[in-house]
């Protein structure tokens, strides 16, 4: 279990330094605490972002964990609050509660190959883990990033993926579900990449984040390769509202996803995954 912030129910004002348009419906906010001071978090954790009067949404942190002067969130506009966030400009202020939840266990993977499997906007919560892995690159075997997006136009953090791919010590596989002839990359599901990627299944830790359906099949592909369920970690999405396991909304079986997750060891939740409407 992780340590909660000092006053977890009160939004702390953060000023927007910069808004970066990532995709047609996705943007990144660079934030700084209004009152100064630092913001520390661990990769995989999330904040509740508050837009004055409009409401609050859980958003994972997508920035560099070693950088505590600037808070970074990558957001897809899908509902009223995320759309309200999308209308904000540099200089505006948002409320931040957090960080909440369990982190990606990047340190536990030292000595293993690290397989990072992301789908769609699920790359955002994994980016801090990638930064942490790169900062500790010599401690891992292979570092393999497998990323699936809907179309080439939906590839998040494209420049960074290209930069990582150009390194000799990182393997990056990007695949899209739908493409036209302009796309010279791979077309097909991310699970196919998992089936073929060159990690050593007996010594691999996998971090998986994406739509729940994609995660189910990705985990299946990892298991078929022989990766132990105890070395697979998934990040769950449920209706997080309070962040401290108090309001009940994010329950998934016996777990409060906001507190016991969002990152779960797959072997701890394997029995819950197949149950519908849990």
């Amino acid at each position: 279990m992780t340590v909660l912030p000092a006053n977890p129910m009160s939004p702390r004002p953060f000023r927007i330094l910069k808004v970066v348009r990532e995709l047609s419906d996705t943007f990144t906010l660079l934030l700084q605490p209004e009152t100064g001071g630092a913001f520390s978090f661990r990769p995989g954790q999330f904040n509740m972002l508050y837009v004055f009067g409009a409401g609050e949404v859980p958003i994972s942190i997508s920035g560099e964990p070693a950088e505590d002067r600037q808070l970074v969130h990558t957001i897809r506009s899908v509902g009223p609050v995320t759309q309200a966030l999308g209308r904000l400009k540099a200089g505006d202020v948002v409320g931040v509660r957090g960080p909440f939840g369990t982190p990606w266990p990047v340190e536990d993977a030292f000595g293993d190959d690290l397989a990072i499997i992301a789908g769609g906007v699920g790359l955002a919560p994994l980016r801090p883990a990638i930064y942490q892995a790169l900062a500790n690159r010599p401690r891992f075997g292979k570092l393999i990033i497998m990323y699936g997006a809907r179309t080439p136009q939906d590839i998040l953090f494209r420049k960074e993926l290209e930069k990582w791919r150009s390194r000799f010590d990182v393997n990056v596989h990007v695949t899209v579900d739908h493409a036209t002839g302009q796309w010279a990359g791979r077309v097909g599901v991310v699970t196919k990449v998992v089936a073929k990627a060159g990690f050593d299944p007996l010594h691999t830790t996998a971090l998986v984040c994406g739509p729940e359906v994609m995660m189910r099949y990705a985990v299946e592909a990892l298991e078929e390769r022989g990766v132990a369920a105890s070395k697979v970690h998934v990040s769950m999405e449920r209706n997080m509202k309070c962040g401290v396991g108090l309001c009940g909304h994010c329950q998934w079986g016996p777990h409060f996803v906001c507190r016991d997750g969002p990152v779960f060891r797959f072997s701890d939740v394997a029995a819950l995954f197949p149950v519908r409407e849990l």
Partner: peptide, 18 residues
């Protein structure tokens, strides 16, 4: 079989707008 399964997965459009 694998290609059929992969095709069906893409049919779901899992990254779609919901």
């Amino acid at each position: 079989g694998q290609r059929l399964a992969a095709t069906r997965l893409r049919l779901i459009d899992i990254y779609g707008p919901g």
